[in-house]
Structures are given as structure tokens and as C-alpha cells.
Design a protein around this nucleic acid. Structure first.
Lengths: 341, 341
DNA sequence: TTGAAAGCGCTAACAA
DNA sequence: TTGTTAGCGCTTTCAA
């Protein structure tokens, strides 16, 4: 694991019998170099295995062509879409993705920004745990684009959770559910707040009641407690903060002998990998994570069309994926939950 | 999305009334600076919001404290463990992870190495699609550590697929299965070859027969064709190249009315997120992906204890997770598959 | 313990 | 069209 000595621009210049600047131009400004000289330079460079050192280029230009993406948890399947979309967009323009794990912690996130801000051209912060002040502080260090988070003055790309919640409630209401239990996400979470607000508003519009329980951690493990709480509420439909929680809820319900969807319908958010695979398959609200990641990167690099400080958040669409975990509400008399309340 | 002008070492030096070198030492070599001067310098630096520019540091030292991890597909849940482990290890020593997507292509991978090799301290290549020559070429450009791939002369960290295959076959044999169908992975895949070899050897030892079908793409979608092929073979147990394929197989079997595990047992590799969630839950061989990612990074950074060119691959353990998709082989007469063969 | 000076590899004026 | 010169921000001899 030893590093070989690499040829520099000076080596190439000497070998080719030209000035270093000519070598430089041959690579980065072909128009301003004689085709012949350039061909020769490139030839020598190839022979010497030379390629411009991006670090030196970055020092000179002040731009590293690198963007950092910070997610709360790399291992959470929900976030891979953003990573994928961001990487694709960056790679397509010869840029580099730095990936950092925020460890579900505002402090860790801020440390990441502190550590990296000189080395990258900007940050995409997905579902940031930082508060508004910390976010603005971060934006003072380097360009920042938020994903699924809105803070006044900062550019952001957000999924349409309000419209999505409407789809969920509409779906549930059409199945005859009159009372929804929402298993809320973490109290500091922007998306948890948005999702709950969306459901509440939609519930009003559809004339159904929605009660919020929690907060719960957005994990499979938290599903047990969440399911028990939901059962105690005796509602025929449960809307979980996210798919992980929803899956945990279904596992617990199965364990307690409650049938999904016959006795209780369950809906999640995110449509993560696995939502289609669990049993019953989960009805959930899908968002365009890859697209959001890509848009955020674009906004960062070029101040995209409708994104930027002072601009409203760019909204990406959501759509409800109806699977096996939701069904017609049971008649009140035969509802499993009813016997419990 | 505009970048503010940052204070440089010169600004701090001027403001503090010392030389730039003193400021430099105050940050990177505290021992060689008077405690008083240092305190003052740090104070001024803090006031000016100064922090050393890592790009300039990298240019000077030739080391960027950055490691690139290349995976065949960022969105494949199997790979997130490696990413997580690598990131954790890097972050704990104030280093940075660059993540690149190899797009399941040797060409794309090689392009990534070409593009990044000057900007990073080395590469961790997970399940690389490149051939041995390309790999050695890459290692000539920058330090390389392979994960789940062995090439003579290159450092590597690999999961114990041979031992794992033994666990799988032993499990299946103990359930009375006498004939195994292996649904092989892509033909160029090192891990596919290892897995098949492991199963074949173990099958010999246990006196059961193993036939290999394929190659199949390691995807859910490929499961349909794979399942049909397996059914045609009329075996009571199927070992799929990976979990994605195994899940696709189970979905197809369900569609064709074949009961898992009553009629056919199914085993996968990887224990990805979702393997526990599908129905029936998948019996599969788990490996320590995070550990592998972490070990690879360590090997890269310090030439770890037993890893490096000329060293044998470092092997991480695997273990079989038995879930609902495997069961006692049905008696031959009542085997669903038997009527087909 | 501190400062001055050189230089990491490259690019960007400015001349020629 | 090409070469010369001066840095980008930092670290590191070498002296003082």
C-alpha cells in the first residue's frame, strides 16, 4: 500500500519542451493552444502517466468540484435514494460526492459541516436534525441546500407531504375509516410535523377524526410500543410516521393476533425497499428521493431555476402506493379493536 | 448560494502579529510553540473564524485524508453496511469518505479510479467488477484494498463464503434435502464463483448433490426465471446467489402455487434489510459488512496487521440466519416438485 | 521559540 | 500562440 511518485505538470513541460502553462492549457483550455503543440503535450503526458492534480486545481480555483451529502443515518434504507440521485448527478458532471453520516444528531451534523466546509463546494443536508440557527450558521460557512426540511432563507427541496397526507386520508376515508391514529415521529423532526399537519388538515376536510400518539422513534423496534398504544386507542386505521415504524407495528399486531388489514389498516411513509416485501405488503406514501437528491445537487451547483435563498422550497411530488395493508373498515360490531376499547 | 471570503493563515498572522508559520504550528504542531503565543493565535483565529484549509494542507502533504469507496450499486441494500462501516471508521479519525457508484460496470469503475486517484489517499473497491489486470492497474495509481474479491498481490478483506456455504449445506442436509439447486450469480462475479464452489465442496462432504443453474442477475426481477428453472430441476431446496434473487424466487413460487418451505426450501446470501421481513422470512447467510468496510479502510490507512499486498486476504466470519423459508424436506411422494420432474 | 523563505502543483494575468 | 511571473493557502526547512 505504497504510493508511487506521480508526474507533475513540470515534468511534462520539461519533457515536451514547453512551458508549464502550455501543458495546463492543453488540458483545461484547448482552444488557446496550437493543435500540434497540444497533441504533442498530450502525447508526452500520456507517456508519463500524467493527469492534472485535482487538489492543486482546487487550491487555485477555490472550488473542489465536490459536494457533501449529509444524511441522518447511512444505513437507513430511506436515505439511499437521495444518495443515489445526488451521486448520479455529480458523476455526470465529473464531480465528486462526499458522504457523511449525521448519526441522527444535530451536534454530529454540525461537526461534519465544520470539518468539511473548506473542502467541499457545498452541502446537501437531508432531513437535517439541526435547528434553524445551526442551519443558518452552516449556510454561512458554505452553500447549503436542504432536503425535506424548510428553514427561512435557505434553499430547499421537499416532498409534498401535505398532498401525500391528503392521498392517504382520502384512501382511508373511502374505505370507511372514520377515525385515524397517527403514530408520530420524533418531536424535533420537521417531516414528522409536516406529516402530522397534513393528516390533520386532510382529516378535517374528509370529516374523519385523527388523533396523534407518540412521539415514537422512526424504527422497527419502536413499532411494538406504537402498536400497543394504537390498539389502546381502538381505531380501525393507523398511519405511521414511516415505513420502518409501520413494519414494526405490523409485526407487533401479528404477534398480538390482530389481523392486518381485516381488523386494522396500516399506512406508512417512504416506500422503502422492503415495504413491498413484508406481509401484508405495506400501503405507503412514496416520494421521489433520487429526484430530490439530484435537484438539491443541481441547486447547489448552479442555483437552479426555482431554488435558492429567498425562493420558496422546490416541491417534489408524492404518490400513494396501495398494497395489502389497507382494506375496508370492519363493521363496528365485529371490529377486533372495538372489544378492547 | 454565494461563498463568503474566508480568513487565511496570513490574515490571522497579521492580526495576531506573528508569522504565518507560527499560526501553522499553533494548529498542527502545538508542542513547538509557546503556550502563550498559541493561546493568542487560537484566540485571534477563532475571532476571525479561521480554520486551516484542508485543500492547501493536502497539496502540501500529498495526502487528502480522504478515501474513496466504490460499490457496484449504491441503491443495493447489501452494500450499505460496507459504506456505514467505512464512514464510521473514517469519521472517527477526522477523515472523509468519497462514495462512488460503479454502475455494475468494470468500465465505469475504472473511470472512477482514473478520475479520483489523485484526489484520494486510496480506494476501497467492494465486489469490484473489474478484471484482475484492471485491478492491478488501479492499484498502480493509488493504494487499493478489495472487499469480497481476491486478486493476487492486492490486499483484500473477504467474507468466509466457504465456511458459510458449509453452514447452509449442513443445515439443508440435516433437514433431509438430498439435492440442491444453486441459482448462480453473474458469470464474472468473484463472489458468485466462491459461493458456488463452497456449496459444491460442502455438498460433496455431506453426500448430497448440488446442481448449478444460471447465471442469473442478482436482482429481484431475475427471480422469476430462476424460480422456473429451479422448478424444472425438481429439487426440494434452492440456494440463491443472493437475497434479492431469493426473494424474487419466492415471489414467483408463490405465484405458481408452490409452497415455501413446505414444498421447496429457499436460502439466500447477504441477510439484507428485508430478508427478515418478507414472507416467509428468508433463511440466509449473514456477513459482517460493516466490519469488512471498517477493516478495509484501516488496511488502507495503516497497512493493518494481516492485510496488505503479499498478505493473504483477511477473512470475516459469516453465519447462517435460519428463518421461515427452510424446513424439513417433504417425503418424495408428496413433493410438489416431484410431480413435475 | 520564532521568523523568513522556498515550494507543494497548478492556473491566470501579462508580455512577448 | 507561447512563455514568464506571481500567487492559491499552507507547511517546512533553515536561521536567528
Amino acid at each position: 500500500v505504497q504510493r508511487p511518485r506521480r508526474a507533475t505538470i513540470t515534468d511534462v513541460a520539461a519533457e515536451a519542451g514547453v512551458a508549464a502553462s502550455t501543458v495546463s492549457r492543453s488540458f483545461t483550455n484547448p482552444a488557446r493552444v496550437n493543435q500540434h503543440t497540444r497533441a504533442h503535450v498530450l502525447d508526452v503526458a500520456a507517456r508519463l502517466g500524467y493527469a492534472p492534480n485535482p487538489v492543486a486545481q482546487a487550491l487555485e480555483s477555490g472550488r473542489s468540484n465536490t459536494v457533501a451529502l449529509v444524511v441522518p443515518d447511512i444505513a437507513n434504507p430511506f436515505f439511499v435514494g437521495f444518495v443515489k440521485g445526488a451521486e448520479r448527478t455529480l458523476a455526470s458532471s465529473q464531480r465528486t460526492l462526499v458522504l457523511a453520516d449525521g448519526r441522527e444528531s444535530a451536534v454530529a451534523e454540525e461537526a461534519v459541516v465544520q470539518r468539511l466546509h473548506r473542502a467541499v463546494d457545498g452541502f446537501v443536508l437531508v432531513a437535517s436534525r439541526m435547528d434553524d440557527d445551526a442551519l443558518r450558521r452552516a449556510a454561512g460557512l458554505a452553500p447549503v441546500v436542504l432536503v425535506n426540511r424548510v428553514t427561512a432563507g435557505l434553499a430547499s427541496v421537499v416532498a409534498d407531504y401535505v398532498g401525500g397526507a391528503e392521498q392517504i386520508v382520502s384512501h382511508l376515508a373511502s374505505l370507511g375509516h372514520r377515525r385515524l391514529v397517527v403514530l408520530g415521529g420524533p418531536s424535533g423532526s420537521w417531516s414528522a410535523a409536516r406529516r402530522w399537519t397534513g393528516v390533520r388538515v386532510a382529516a378535517d376536510r374528509h370529516g374523519v377524526t385523527a388523533v396523534r400518539l407518540g412521539p415514537f422513534q422512526p424504527t422497527f423496534a419502536a413499532g411494538a410500543a406504537a402498536a400497543d398504544a394504537a390498539l389502546a386507542e381502538g381505531s380501525s386505521a393507523v398511519v405511521a410516521h414511516n415505513d420502518l415504524l409501520a413494519m414494526g407495528v405490523m409485526a407487533r399486531l401479528a404477534q398480538r393476533g390482530v389481523q392486518v388489514p381485516e381488523q386494522v389498516s396500516v399506512v406508512g411513509f417512504d416506500d422503502i425497499f422492503g415495504a413491498a416485501l413484508c406481509s401484508p405488503a405495506l400501503t405507503t406514501l412514496a416520494e421521489r428521493a433520487e429526484e430530490s437528491g439530484a435537484l438539491a445537487v443541481e441547486a447547489l451547483l448552479e442555483g437552479g431555476p426555482s431554488v435558492g435563498p429567498g425562493h420558496p422550497p422546490q416541491v417534489t411530488p408524492t404518490h400513494l402506493v396501495v398494497r395489502g395493508s389497507t382494506a375496508q373498515a370492519a363493521a363496528a360490531g365485529q371490529r377486533g379493536a372495538a372489544t378492547r376499547s
